[in-house]
């Protein structure tokens, strides 16, 4: 069926997406700066291969996609899941931290999407899904470079959709809310977790697989008329007003 590369697929939502896409019968390349982690994900799945990829290095992006073009004459899907956050407050935010977050979350996406889209445009077909965040909708505390990068990423991918739509290339974003990934587990103190949960109408964080389900849908032909969209998969969080306080313990799986 479909050939899909998942950038940042060694953990979290990316890894869950790899599992789902493989289960759908896709040939998947899981590309990650954590090559060992990528190999672990690939090890359990016969149609999945791991490749090292550091999205902060232009040369690494190029060599990864050069190899992909050698192996695969066509590319049907790209999932861009690479992302990092920061726990520096705005007044303390260091220039190099800002640059790091923007490079991984935004510039890396630009570089990978460009290489993928060239392959897809040549074949007049393809689907790109990038991971945004509810942070792009409304700011929370101590999240400025991450949130800004995701807002910019949404706009970039919509521009990509606009330019490449006539060439049969679709591009969308999934915007998760609070999700139980290693990244979030590192950044969310118990105080932050409690504050977030009170604002989630469904009363709980998401499981990475619940986000991966939306990613897999958008990659697939079931989403053939969907492009230029930000698909919020956030338990109702960004639709909720600040007066919505969810009773504790009301979350269900």
């Amino acid at each position: 069926m479909r050939r899909v590369v998942v950038v940042g697929g060694a953990s979290g939502i990316g890894a869950a997406a790899v599992v789902r896409l493989a289960a759908r019968g896709c040939d998947v390349v899981v590309a990650d700066v954590d090559y060992a982690g990528a190999q672990q994900v690939a090890a359990k799945l016969t149609t999945v291969r791991a490749m090292p990829l550091d999205v902060m290095e232009h040369a690494s992006v190029n060599s990864c996609f050069d190899e992909l073009e050698q192996r695969w004459s066509t590319l049907d899907g790209l999932v861009y899941c690479a992302g990092i956050g920061s726990s520096q407050s705005f007044l303390d935010l260091e220039r190099r931290e800002w640059d790091r977050v923007l490079t991984v979350n935004l510039t890396g996406a630009f570089l990978c999407c460009q290489r993928a889209a060239r392959m897809m445009a040549a074949a007049r077909s393809g689907s790109i899904v990038a991971l945004s965040s509810v942070a792009a909708q409304r700011p929370s505390s101590i999240n400025s470079p991450y949130a800004a990068s995701k807002a910019a990423l949404e706009n970039l991918v919509m521009n990509l959709a606009m330019e490449l739509g006539p060439l049969g290339v679709r591009a969308n974003l999934v915007a998760p809310g609070a999700t139980n990934t290693p990244l979030v587990q590192k950044l969310h103190t118990s105080e932050r977790r409690a504050a977030f949960t009170r604002r989630i109408p469904l009363g709980r964080y998401a499981d990475p697989d619940e986000i991966a389900a939306a990613v897999s849908f958008l990659i697939s032909d079931d989403a053939s008329f969907i492009t230029g969209q930000v698909f919020l998969v956030d338990g109702g969080m960004s639709a909720a007003n600040v007066l919505t306080e969810v009773p504790p313990g009301s979350g269900r799986h």
Binding site: G177, P201, L202, A206, D207, E210, I211, A214, F225, I226, G228, Q229, F231, L232, V233, D234, G235, G236, S238, A239, A240
Partner: peptide
């Protein structure tokens, strides 16, 4: 996990 969403098709 999708609620309160508006999806353009």
């Amino acid at each position: 996990y999708v609620t309160g969403a508006v999806l353009g098709v």
